[in-house]
Design a protein around this nucleic acid. Structure first.
Lengths: 333, 333
DNA sequence: TTGAAAGCGCTAACAG
DNA sequence: CTGTTAGCGCTTTCAA
């Protein structure tokens, strides 16, 4: 590989001059500039980013930690983070943490040691050692998707309570009288918040949420299947159902249909997130969309600002969800 | 950040000794080793990977270029490449090329300039300048998913012709008499190969594939919708349909069902890839699975071998697809 | 406006 | 077994 030094020799100038031409850091005579540019072109010189980063103590790479790459919603997060990073000339390093503290710590270590420009976590674990690692470094960090209560790290998250409110309101608007819900684990804050928004809104409209129509489990397809199966086995009937994400909703709809229960005629079913397959499902899934694109853009913007030591206006940015009505819900006739 | 030099001072040894302790490159007295390790521990020293990489002219990072991060099948590719990379202590840089030559070239440039350890392309464009970039560098490269005819770059790809054969055979086994197929663009080699395998197999069993029951388009959901809509509008009927990927199949199934045509009772529908939502769909989608996990593992293994200047046994590794039978196909009663 | 020189943090001869 | 030295490729004072 040709180095800056080689270019300098060819152009008959000093290395510093070549550097100045490349980075435009100082004024250079038109004549010298021309000679340098010519030399660069003839040997097809490309600056070594490693050397540059070592010298400047900074890279143009950012790290993204997700609990599961193949999860449809993190899939969107990865896509949009990459997109925003690209726009700002940042490259993206991805780590799948599998919700595992060791993996998380390991990824952070690797990133910090490469003088990463910033780290975006979705679902940081609240294990102390990870937080401590972040504290002890001065690398910009942002949490997306799940809130973390640490004054130093900005949060870019959804208003999950409002999501619950909106889900309840839409099902009520459809004329549903008896609601069920299948949730993620209540150990996770956002599952509780979504649930509270949902329950509070039903109560406000004089509808009590039956405890036996609440099924708590994982944020996956199987849990949607398990929830509906449980409701049917215990003989509980309902005409409105909210799954706390689209995979739960898909499992629920499939199970209802396989039991000869029509969606949306007999039961209106809603999901959440608006992942890609929600619109491809049959029936297509009504859902509460997360503004992933804006949230990801914001997260990268935060990294950028923190890098430049600018103030990040709000410590916690709360994004409003959006209702998307499709086929799986309909007004009772 | 504390440097190796600091550790050396604290331990009262030379920098090289510290380096030797860390890398285990040479024998060091137990006593000195202890002192160095103690010093490392007290200041919580972590070697700077940038400096190390600059010196060694190599990183532990690899690059992955995909045409679309949010595409369900590339999603799996990303997941499994990350997994295989992690197992080998490699970090993953991701670029979304959007099938765009400029983006591709830009990503390669950025990667080469960081002395990336290797690059995995899925869907490299056959534009000359990208190939030329790869030729002129000595960085290990591998193509996954779409074949590239260049003697220097190993290919890790599926036997797409066989996939077509298997799809045809399964539909025949279901007792289908009149076949339709919705394909990706025939500009893409793998779409042609899949089609040929499908058509040849039908002919071998004495079934001619009706030209009017072949619909060519994009590899997406909309194309599945468009294909079936077209068939129905032109009055062509069929009892077996193969969509060349699962999204096409999903679009096709949804459109059939919405027209009151039952799947699989009236029409058996198959997809391809076995992406995540295939099993979540309703009806769940029978499909031709790609062994993504093994393919990704192979791709990373190739990078690893090429890095060590080992020979990569085969230039082109062809993987066999696998039939996965679910609800969307069934034997005619 | 340009060049010389130092140094980012590390490793690897080469001596001893 | 360990220290000294040079250098990976770049940027940035400082001086001319």
């Amino acid at each position: 590989m040709t180095s800056l030094k080689d270019v300098a020799t060819i152009a008959g100038v000093s290395p510093s001059t070549v550097s100045r031409v490349i980075n435009g850091t100082m004024y250079v005579t038109d004549e010298t500039r021309r000679r340098v540019e010519e030399a660069i072109a003839t040997v097809n010189y490309r600056p070594n980013l490693l050397a540059q980063s070592l010298r400047l103590k900074a890279t143009r790479n950012i790290g993204l930690l997700v609990p599961e790459i193949a999860h449809p919603s993190f899939n969107l997060v990865i896509k949009y983070i990459e997109e925003s990073a690209f726009k700002r000339g940042l490259n993206l390093l991805i780590f799948n943490t599998h919700n595992n503290h060791g993996r998380e710590a390991n990824a952070m270590d690797l990133l910090l040691r490469q003088r990463i420009n910033g780290i975006i976590f979705s679902r940081i674990s609240d294990e102390n050692h990870v937080i401590n690692m972040s504290r002890s470094s001065d690398i910009p960090m942002v949490v997306i998707d799940r809130s973390l209560h640490d004054e130093k790290i900005p949060n870019v998250i959804l208003d999950n309570y409002l999501a619950g409110v909106m889900a309840a309101e839409h099902l009520l608007a459809c004329g549903c009288k008896k609601m069920a819900t299948i949730t993620g684990s209540f150990k996770i804050g956002l599952a509780r918040e979504r649930f509270q928004g949902f329950r509070d809104t039903l109560e406000k409209h004089g509808l009590q949420l039956d405890r036996d129509l609440v099924y708590e489990g994982e944020f996956n397809f199987e849990n949607g299947v398990a929830g509906v199966t449980h409701f049917l086995e215990t003989g509980y009937s309902f005409d409105g159902l909210w799954g706390q994400n689209d995979m739960i909703a898909a499992g629920a709809i499939g199970t209802l249909v396989r039991h000869g229960i029509k969606v949306p005629e007999d039961v209106s079913v809603m999901g959440m997130d608006d992942v890609q397959f929600a619109r491809m499902y049959c029936p297509s899934i009504s859902t509460i969309a997360q503004p992933y694109k804006e949230m990801c853009e914001k997260a990268v913007e935060c990294i950028d600002k923190l890098t430049k030591d600018e103030e990040v206006e709000q410590f916690q940015v709360l994004y409003p969800p959006k209702l998307v009505v499709r086929e799986s819900t309909a007004e009772k006739s």
